[in-house]
């Protein structure tokens, strides 16, 4: 099994939102909806404040509760990997998967009514390309690759830098990593 991961450097991300625009363009995401977004987290007490920018999206979890709870098999894994996709022809729009995602990362594709989400641009990955967001980043803070390959860029970054994932307590084992 290939374990695709995204490794995002919060130290070089400037929160410009280019990844958000790249995704909307590449995947023709309807107006008003977003498969990825930017979180600007300010922590601390004035004057000792720290700001972190995070480009967030579906974490393509190793334990994807959205797939487990889908009653029809519409939510599924792509080609023996951890990429979570939705088959629109199998989706009833019951929204169980939306409730099942602890990261609230899914969305209802209007006006058709099926559930839509980040695909890690599997149509590009298939051709050996990076996801649209990764390739559009002007500061090159985003990296994509296979974590099961110890020589990949993402594996090396995680081996050498300090990192975190979002709410690891969910037990979902998310695969979007943030370098800190």
């Amino acid at each position: 099994m290939t374990r695709f991961a995204m490794v995002i450097d919060t130290r070089t991300c400037i929160g410009c939102g280019d990844c958000v625009v790249a995704c909307k363009t590449e995947n023709k995401v309807p107006a008003g909806l977003n498969r990825d977004w930017i979180v600007e987290a300010t922590s601390g007490t004035y004057p000792n404040l720290k700001t972190e920018f995070r480009s967030e999206r579906c974490n393509h979890c190793s334990n994807p509760t959205c797939v487990t709870l889908c009653p029809t098999g519409a939510s599924h894994l792509w080609q023996d990997s951890n990429i979570v996709l939705v088959d629109a022809d199998k989706c009833t729009g019951c929204k169980a998967c939306i409730a099942a995602c602890p990261y609230d990362a899914r969305l209802v594709m209007h006006p058709d009514g099926y559930v839509d989400k980040c695909t890690f641009c599997h149509h590009r990955v298939e051709k050996g390309l990076d996801p649209a967001c990764v390739s559009s980043c002007p500061t090159r803070c985003m990296h994509f690759g296979d974590l099961d390959d110890p020589g990949s860029e993402v594996s090396r970054l995680l081996a050498t830098r300090s990192w975190k994932v979002l709410s690891p307590e969910t037990g979902n084992e998310p695969n979007v990593y943030y370098l800190t």
Binding site: V20, W37, I38, V39, E40, T42, I98, L107, V108
Partner: peptide, 11 residues
């Protein structure tokens, strides 16, 4: 937290 670009319907 400040979230840019996310106001997905129903979510």
């Amino acid at each position: 937290l400040l979230v840019t670009a996310r106001s997905n319907a129903l979510i």
